[in-house]
């Protein structure tokens, strides 16, 4: 506990950076994966390209990707932008299939009715397809969030100042308290993110707050996340 109190400033700094490094990939990944998923549903050929592209991307181990990206982006190896880009790619890879499946599962009669009432393709997407896919998208996003927060730690190996530093440093010094603080702090971030996502989901999708709605309406595509 003494180490924790004495290093409180360091820990909050690392935590803040960890949060910042996580938020950007989660948000960007979602924002890119949803339109990609929509495109994937237009044509079967596009679908296989997008889906297998996503799976392939996800099989690249994170550490080599962190090391390769500086050459591609022209950044320094210690630059946090490498981590943000790498994790955004993983977030897209994880999210794109869920997005495609979620959008494909929107009831056809709702889409047909919306078209018949005079929604344009664009407004129909935003006001009908996207919200109705929402619960499944949210489930996918929660997995992406947890996974991204975990992966940020790996960046500490190439010198990023985030909670992962407490694992690597604690391991080197064989100092358990530091490692535990690192684990607990990242768990707390993951938990807070998850709670925020669920609350946000309830705010933007008020119809899901009723008992049993999710159970009745949306079948989560099991085993297709990640």
């Amino acid at each position: 506990m003494i180490w924790f109190i004495e290093n409180f400033g360091l820990i909050t700094g690392l935590t803040a950076n960890h949060v910042a490094l996580s938020i950007v990939p989660i948000v960007l990944g979602f924002a890119i994966a949803v339109p990609l998923g929509w495109i994937a549903n237009r044509r079967p050929a596009l679908r296989s390209v997008v889906i297998s592209g996503g799976s392939l991307l996800y099989t690249i181990p994170s550490l080599p990707l962190f090391v390769i990206l500086p050459y591609v982006l022209g950044t320094k190896i210690t630059d946090d932008r490498n981590i943000v880009v790498a994790l955004t790619l993983y977030a897209i890879a994880m999210m794109v299939r869920t997005a495609a499946d979620a959008l494909a599962a929107v009831p056809a009669d709702a889409i047909e009715a919306a078209t018949a009432m005079g929604y344009s393709t664009w407004t129909r997407f935003w006001l009908v397809e996207f919200p109705l896919a929402g619960p499944v998208l949210l489930a996918g996003l929660r997995v992406v969030s947890a996974s991204t927060i975990t992966l940020v730690s790996v960046g500490a190996i190439i010198g990023s100042a985030n909670l992962g530093y407490l694992f690597t440093n604690g391991k080197q010094r064989d100092f358990l308290e530091e490692i535990i603080v690192g684990i607990v702090a990242s768990l707390v971030i993951a938990l807070v993110f998850d709670v925020v996502l669920v609350i946000l989901g309830g705010v933007v999708m008020p119809w899901t707050r009723r008992d049993g709605w999710i159970r009745r309406r949306s079948v989560l595509p099991v085993g297709q996340v990640g």
Binding site: P107, D109, A113, A116, M117, G118, L132, W207
Partner: peptide, 22 residues
């Protein structure tokens, strides 16, 4: 066609009500 559809009332068999709207 989009504007034309807004000038026509359409009732569908499966009601076609949007499940996420009151």
């Amino acid at each position: 066609p989009v504007l034309l559809r807004r000038r026509i009332g359409y009732v569908l068999q499966a009601t076609g009500l949007l499940p996420h709207r009151r």
